[in-house]
Design a protein around this nucleic acid. Structure first.
Lengths: 337, 337
DNA sequence: ACCCGCTATCGAAGCGCTTCGACAACCTAT
DNA sequence: ATAGGTTGTCGAAGCGCTTCGATAGCGGGT
């Protein structure tokens, strides 16, 4: 491996000069800089990451904790992860992938060892056990998702309450009075994942304001579970004409089942989905949906984090405003015959 | 931050002794070891990753290059990534997430800087431009996927040729004579992704052996693209009764379209999918399928890599044998009326 | 009593880099 | 001409760890 010293010798300067060329922390004459850069190229020099981390006590690595389970939103998680990785690179950082498996210990290990300069946590629960650690360490962190108490934390998330409200408003505007919400799997609610509950809050609050009837049912993904759930919903509220679906793997089954029962979308029944755009446009009926801006969330998280690493103190919550795209799955409520 | 020296002082031993307690590379008396371990716990010591990497020239990090594009097999990629991360942890390694974006430069950067001790590459193309670099570096690597020339490389993959053969055999056994293959998006074939071509080879070869007629059509995901593709297939080969689908986002649209055209599955038409089990069981018809063993692939890759890091030389290709699970989407070919 | 071969421990060198203070050279402004 | 400020470069001191000899102590064979 080529070292800094070898580059220095090759360029006929001291090691520190090469270092300053690399970091730009002191001014270097143009001629020297060029000579050094030439040597770097010729020798194929790459600074040693360990040495750099040791000397500067910065690893230029961001840790990303992703959930271990693959029961929800896998494509969203993936998209966020990729956005985080690419955005981090543009800021000179690499990304270390941690799974939830280790739990809070991972936070301790990573911050304690200086492996990463900062971390991004996904799939945050309302009362997440990693939060006290984050608050007590001096390493910057950003959450993707919103816990119950955000004091002293930086968070990035879609505004799910507004998302819920937006879905209800859209259906209300079209004249629907009875709305059913097909939610995530029960387990998601049981572990108090923020986004699911906040969506529900938004839905309920706005429905109440607008005087709509709202029925919420969690639902495992897949065809069979959806069939059972739909039967129950239509049994309890036969007049349901509007559906809000927040579960990627329930949306296509729902459409199929409705079709099968002779309920046309959007003539008889309207469906609004909360899902990535890709899912919305690939469905058998192009879905009116509120997109989950995965890329944007990943990018935002990294940018907040980098800002913090550069010393800008900003414990703020960034809520991305939801956007509803009207496609072919919603229409006016059928007139009562 | 607590340092080795502080632990040593606290335990009343020298720094090197603490180091040897940690690494186990020299024998240490039980009493000393316990005293040191006690100090480590009391002080909450975590070895500094950078210093360790510098001194030992091993970072205990494995780099994982995932594809940037999200057009294929996202859940599979995710599952592999998670399996890699968790398996790596059990061997004392962390995982650095690289996206394909940087291309071959990422390989240079990571190996050159000593950021990672080894790497795992996903989404390998038949003639991947990263391969020469991997062959010329002394850092171990493992590919998930199979390039055209595997000499000097270690690869892990599902045996896709056998997978194709298996699908054909299953349909042949049920009496189907005209088989259509719904493949990945054209772009996947255009960039010569190994798995797609190898599956096709397996399908064709076995179909020929068994005297079946085979029609292969690439297909973008989604409902509309599938509708066009299906129409073309049935136009060219109206007698088609067997489908092999290798495209997650085409499988549900295909089922819906068949239903819509009054072709019952499996009475009139049989469908075999090549997809993760989760997709197969969640579909509107429980699909006979060959599973993509994502977890197993990730785990295998790490284990091969760790073996190489520990000095075991083994340039081998691990092909995981496909397993076909019969579910509700395949049945005897309809008797010609 | 002696040497041998253990085991358990220590001290010191050094991994490759960053960074601080020093300083020479030059360029104004007086 | 001199003081004062820049600008560009260098040397050296570490960062916290691993690892290589060296050494002290001990029991056993002779």
């Amino acid at each position: 491996m080529v070292t800094l010293a070898e580059v220095a010798q090759h360029a006929g300067v001291s090691a520190s000069t090469v270092s300053y060329v690399l970091s730009g922390k002191r001014s270097i004459s143009t001629t020297t800089r060029q000579r050094v850069e030439q040597s770097i190229r010729e020798l194929g020099y790459h600074p040693n990451a360990g040495a750099r981390a040791l000397a500067s006590s910065r690893s230029n690595i961001i840790a990303l904790m992703i959930p271990l389970r693959t029961d929800i939103y896998v494509p969203v998680m993936m998209e966020i992860a990729i956005a985080v990785a690419t955005t981090a690179r543009t800021h000179g950082y690499d990304v270390l992938l941690l799974t939830g498996e280790e739990g809070p210990d991972a936070v301790r290990r990573v911050t304690g060892s200086g492996l990463a300069d900062a971390m991004i946590l996904m799939d945050v629960e309302l009362d997440d056990e990693r939060l006290p650690l984050l608050r007590s360490t001096d390493r910057p962190s950003v959450l993707i998702g919103l816990p119950a108490d955000t004091s002293g934390l930086t968070c990035v998330d879609l505004d799910f309450a507004a998302t819920g409200a937006l879905c209800v408003e859209h259906l209300a505007m079209l004249g629907h009075r009875d709305i059913a919400v097909i939610g995530e799997a029960p387990a998601v609610y049981e572990r108090h994942t923020g986004f699911a509950e906040r969506t529900l809050d938004g839905l309920r609050y706005r429905a109440k304001e607008l005087g709509l009837r709202l029925l919420h049912r969690p639902c495992e993904g897949g065809y069979d579970a959806m069939a059972v759930t739909l039967a129950r919903v239509l049994d309890e509220r036969p007049g349901t004409t509007g559906f809000v679906v927040q579960n990627e793997s329930a949306v296509e089954p729902l459409l199929a089942l409705l079709r099968q029962q002779g309920r046309a979308v959007p003539e008889d029944v309207s469906v609004v989905a909360i899902c990535p755009d890709q899912v919305a446009v690939q469905a058998s009926v192009r879905l009116t949906s509120v997109a989950i801006p995965a890329q944007e969330m990943g990018r935002h998280a990294v940018e907040r984090l980098v800002a913090k690493l550069e010393g800008q103190v900003s414990d703020e919550v960034v809520l991305i405003a939801p956007e509803l795209t009207v496609r072919a799955s919603t229409g006016p409520a059928p007139t009562v015959s």
